[in-house]
Nucleic acid binder design. Structure first.
Length: 268
DNA sequence: GTACGGCCCTGTTAGC
DNA sequence: TGCTAACAGGGCCGTA
């Protein structure tokens, strides 16, 4: 499932190709999640940005096409005509260089939205998203204060995007394992919050270096898979030995997400 | 304002 | 073998 490293990988592949390309024609699946695709017909794309797990495709008329990949969303370039035979094609934009930008999404958890540039008030998660992981303003103190403001489990807080943007289920489990923090704890001190912030950044960096994590569906713009799934220490490893202490990893559902941790070195 | 449960989706896998 | 049910989960929304 695309989290920050996967979305950033896609952004980096779009940025050299998309700016300056004008949309000649666009189409979409009838679901309201995808119909905004056609709103950028006639506009030219500008720089490709990212905020958390959202792709921000700026246009030359002062708007932004917001793309969320959901769980199975894939962005790719096709030939002069859209691949309408693909049953999972949800949106497409025919461009002025005889290519087509396509958005395919098997499970339809993805979504599109067109907004005035910088105005994210209509996208709840984006509107309340915390700082980017490498924002210099994201100090351990600020991170700790954000966690302290809620009484929910630390795992839930990481997934909320509020303390830091871009963390999803995989990288949350990895960071908590690395920081030796139990995902169910509701409060951590400044010292442990500092370690956790470091480990969130490290987990995301490892993901980026590996070109993302491909468990099943994730593909980058070139159709390639990520490599980070080979390096996971916690996510998806319930029942297997902890890489640190050999204790069998356990799992439970927290915030409707399967969560895996080591009961020994991530003691409550 | 905050917390929580349910919903959206469909391919894959487990179980009978 | 073939069918059914459970499972995966990011974001949003209604309700408490």
């Amino acid at each position: 499932m695309p989290e920050l490293p996967e979305v950033e990988t896609v952004r980096r592949q779009l940025q050299p190709r998309l700016p300056g390309r004008r949309v000649l024609e666009a189409g979409s699946h009838p679901s309201a999640k995808f119909t905004p695709a056609t709103e950028v017909t006639g506009a030219a794309f500008g720089d490709v940005g990212r905020r958390g797990k959202f792709l921000l495709l700026s246009t030359d008329d002062g708007r932004e096409l917001i793309v969320h990949l959901g769980m199975t969303g894939v962005v790719r370039f096709g030939g002069p005509e859209p691949e309408l035979d693909d049953p999972y094609l949800r949106a497409w934009w025919r461009l002025d260089d005889r290519t087509t930008l396509e958005f395919a999404d098997v499970r339809r958890f993805g979504r599109l939205r067109v907004v005035p540039a910088g105005d994210y008030s209509s996208i709840p998660t984006l509107a309340v998203a915390g700082p980017e992981p490498w924002d210099p303003e994201l100090t351990p103190k600020r991170f700790h204060a954000s966690i302290k403001a809620s009484k929910r489990a630390i795992k839930t807080q990481l997934l909320s995007q509020r303390p830091v943007a871009g963390v999803g289920n995989i990288y949350a489990d990895e960071a908590l394992w690395a920081a030796e923090i139990n995902p169910k704890v509701t409060r951590v001190g400044l010292d442990r919050a500092t370690v956790l912030l470091d480990e969130v950044r490290a987990a995301l960096e490892r993901g980026l270096e590996g070109g993302g994590t491909t468990l099943r569906d994730y593909r980058n713009v070139e159709g390639g898979t990520g490599e980070n799934q080979k390096r996971l220490a916690a996510y998806g490893r319930a029942g297997e030995p902890c890489l640190r202490c050999d204790t069998t990893l356990v799992s439970d559902v927290i915030d409707a997400r399967t969560t895996t941790w080591c009961p020994a070195c991530q003691r409550r």
